Simulated assay, not measured.
Amino acid sequence: MAPTHVALSIVLAVVVAFVAPAAAPLVVAVALVGGLAPDLDMVVGVHRRTLHQLEGFTIGAVAAGLVALTTRDVTAVLAATGFGSAALHCFADLAGGSSEPQPWEATTDRGVYLRSGGGWVAPRRWAAYDGSPGDLALAALLSIPGFLAFGDGVRFVLVASLAVGVGYATVRKRVPQLSGRTPAMYAALVAFVSLLVRRR
């Protein structure tokens, strides 16, 4: 679910800010944008296919990371963070459940579409489905590093995101259509990012 992607993106931001402190002022915002952007294909396109470009994001993260390591350029660090966060999003989707209206029924093997393989890769279902109790627990666990490493702005984003996650997990099986298109949730997450940027 989106709050899990938020927390995972901020974990990456913790690592990048530690390794490249010069990028710290923007690294959280870039990580959040990269970590949430792939799911915009719930609004336009085919979910987990149109914007879930695992291979492209991984290549972009490695290439930008190599440039960042050799030049120490902040722009390259931020690019590597954005691409890396988007790639982590795709990997997290593969670790979770399938992309379908009622993923707890596990009737499909649609994890993420890989262009290099020419088809869908089956999900691992380590978190049974988005919004499952295991998914919520993972989001809470992944929130700890960001809560400890960053200040009040990031903490607010994490707490607000977890609150959304609790609500989502509570009603998840009553509203299976949430697997289809969720522009309202993304509008709320964009508001969180905007608030974070304003507080800096």
Rank of each mutant, 00 (worst) to 15 (best):
A22G: 06
V159D: 01
G84R: 00
S179Q: 07
A160D: 09
G60E: 10
R115W: 09
Y168G: 01
L69C: 06
W126Q: 11
R110I: 00
G131N: 09
D109K: 00
L142R: 00
A2M: 05
V19Q: 09
L189V: 04
L94M: 12
L51S: 08
P145C: 08
A17T: 10
A160V: 07
T107S: 11
L136R: 13
V43H: 10
L138Y: 05
D130F: 01
D73V: 00
A188W: 07
L158A: 04
V67N: 07
F83D: 08
G96V: 04
A87C: 03
A80L: 03
T182Y: 07
S99H: 03
G82R: 10
V166Y: 06
Y129I: 11
T108M: 02
V166K: 08
V67K: 10
V154F: 03
A7V: 04
E100H: 10
G96H: 05
V19T: 07
L195H: 07
V112A: 00
G60D: 12
F91V: 15
A95V: 15
V19Y: 04
V74Q: 05
P183M: 13
I59P: 03
V11D: 14
R172K: 13
S179F: 07
R155G: 11
A61L: 15
G153N: 07
T81A: 11
V157S: 13
V28Q: 13
G119T: 05
L141E: 12
L66R: 07
G151R: 08
P101F: 04
L142P: 01
H52W: 15
A184E: 04
W120L: 04
L69F: 09
R115Q: 10
V166P: 01
F150I: 09
